[in-house]
Nucleic acid binder design. Structure first.
Length: 162
DNA sequence: AACCCGTTCAACCGCCATTAA
DNA sequence: CTTAATGGCGGTTGAACGGGT
């Protein structure tokens, strides 16, 4: 026996949200709040969506003051230092970056930032240049494992072990 | 023009934590 | 205290897109 589903999968719509659905959800929450129950909310406002889907849509796209894309160098630095110290705790990392969502940061890290950082590592440590950031320098072994696993080893294959 | 392939990111899935009954 | 319902989170997927051939 599996776990009971949170909603009736057969009668619930999946996939991208339409502008109409967005408008329905946004205007209701702006006027009434979430009512403390995401599961009951879609039925109440006539949306054929899972409550969890509504929650995700609101938190990641519809709520006010959200920024997408255009991560600054300072944001890169904050994400990297937090990732090194606490790992993939995206909600905690997002809490340090106003206007950013955990989903956006997770996507940014997985698709861009970790590659960018690995490249930076190869270009600095791999050529024996001094790494400018001490916390990162202390985690060379960690990065080495990542870079090795992903096949991002520098042509020389050399890493500083300090 | 048609296809391939890598990248991006919105959204889903399933698990664990928390809360209510 | 126990159990069920709901919230929250991180991992993962797959459609859309764009550049290259």
């Amino acid at each position: 026996m599996g776990r009971a589903p949170c909603c009736d999968k057969a009668s619930v719509k999946k996939g991208p949200w339409s502008p109409e659905e967005d408008a329905t959800l946004k205007s209701y929450i702006e006027q009434n709040g979430t009512g403390g129950n995401w599961i009951a909310l879609p039925q109440k406002i006539g949306l054929r969506r899972c409550g969890k889907s509504c929650r995700l849509r609101w938190l990641n796209y519809l709520r006010p003051n959200i920024r997408h894309g255009g991560f600054s160098d300072e944001e890169d630095r904050i994400i990297l230092s937090l990732y090194i110290s606490i790992g993939s705790r995206w909600s905690i990392i997002a809490a340090q970056l106003p206007g950013r969502t955990d989903n956006d940061i997770k996507n940014y890290w997985n698709t861009r930032l970790k590659k960018k950082m690995a490249l930076l590592l190869v270009l600095t440590i791999g050529t024996s240049m001094q790494w400018p950031c001490r916390p990162v320098r202390c985690r060379v072994q960690w990065w080495k494992a990542i870079v090795s696993e992903k096949g991002w080893m520098s042509p020389s294959g050399s890493f500083c072990s300090s």
